[in-house]
Design a protein around this nucleic acid. Sequence first.
RNA 1: GCCGCGUUGGUCAAGGGGUUAAGACGCCUCCCUUUCACGGAGGAAUCACGGGUUCGAAUCCCGUACGUGGUACCA
Length: 510
Amino acid sequence: MSKVRVRFAPSPTGGLHLGGVRTALFNYLFARKHDGNFVLRIEDTDQSRYVEGAEKYIIESLAWCQILPDEGPHKEGDYAPYRQSERKSFYKEYAEELVQKGHAYYAFDTPEEIETLRHRLKSEGKSNLQYGHQVRHQMKNSLSLSKEETDTLINSGTPYVIRIKIDSDESVYLNDLIHGNMHMDTNGVDDKVLLKADGMPTYHLAVVVDDYLMKITHAFRGEEWLPSAPVHILLWKYLGWESNMPKWAHLPLILKPDGNGKLSKRDGERLGFPVFPLGWTDPVSKEYIKGFKELGFLPEAFVNMLAMLGWNAGTEQEIFSMEELIGNFSIERVHSSGAKFDFEKAKWFNHEWIKKSDPERLAPEVKKILQDKKVMIEDDDKFKNIIALVKDRCTLLTDFWEQASYFFLAPEKIDLESILPKWNNDKNLFFIELIRSYSLANSWAHAELEHSFKEIAAVNRLKPGELMLPFRIMLVGGKFGPGVFEVASLLGKEETLKRIRHTLSLLPEK
RNA sequence: GCCGCGUUGGUCAAGGGGUUAAGACGCCUCCCUUUCACGGAGGAAUCACGGGUUCGAAUCCCGUACGUGGUACCA
């Protein structure tokens, strides 16, 4: 049995958003699960829409998601080139072959001619023009024209396209791994253009030829391709490759959270969440849109979240590492219906991943965030302890700033409002005594700090509970954060005393 | 318009003839924590509708509605 080979074929026209990454992910999981190959093919057949940099962006995004193996996607099995524009010559050859076999024909109608015809039909109230079996004999093509006329046109350099010739009432059977057995007829499909006037193939020709040449065994793509699946199946048949046809699976769409439509790039801005894995600059508006990465997502969480959108293992497990996903993945368990994207749930995945990740894993990511705020980390061990202490309360990596900045910088704003109403001279004296006691302390472990704190409170007949809040605010600036004594312990003696003194100086000596 | 695909709480979903119809997110209540989270306990909320088939339908069939995709020399 031949080894599994799946291919992912993004088009470098607009970056790569959620749906695309998920398609890549499912392809990758399937390939890894079956110890097969993942082939990345770049669908740049429409040069007019090609966006400079998009290809690089796609590769970087997949790398961030750990979907590309370290050695690159195409190590094993040399079927290069993988960029469609570089494979131009292959397609023409097969398109011509189809014409010879009578399954395709040359068409000379210009786009404008077709457009006007379309308009006319529409204004006459007729349904949309389908360049197919009903009308092809009235059009300008090698079927309606004589051999001589056709040759003359071609030899004189008239631009032409090659269209597939699809007969009516033909049955096409598709066994989809997700949707099951499907039966369609050819009445709804028109004579698709296979080779454009510029010599580039359309997607229809390109997928079939490349999948054949690259020995692809499984073709998974978005559901938007289902309506044109009969064209592709027919192409496999007409080219005589039917026995090599890959198994198909059409993945459900990711939909807008608020209903109505496939998730698009605009929805992110509109609804306030990212739709790109990495930051992306829109080629038209030049506007930079933050990605999941910049928002503080861990790639593990991003991938996990994406995998659970349309797939589940059939168990109650929701948190999966990449290796676990690979082990559990099965294309049959992918849903057949679209799923609305829920950013709240996405954040929940991130929170879970931050909680379960070691401080070692988190340290480099958090370090970057702090560096952006001009905070440099000198003591790595202490840094990891800080991460361990606060990570449970961070949903996004960027939350580490808010949750831990006071370990590195004295709080800018101290919430005196929360201290003042219950402040009195006894409390003031308590803290003065606390400073004295702490400065003499031999151990700076949090248990000792707590012990002496409570002891002093007891001696002064004060409730420790009423003193802990002011203490916390002195250290962190507000009513939040982990246990006060742990904070004090990590802060160190000098800094702790400094912060108590500072706040005390702001409070009245009543 | 035509064609395709789909429809289980607000969202993700398990379940595929007999179930008290799992679980998760979000929301609410309580406990824990002398802060905020984490954690724990509980709660509200669902089989789109109408017909069949069947002793019995969320589950099978047919319609309808709704959603979604395609209908390009875009992918």
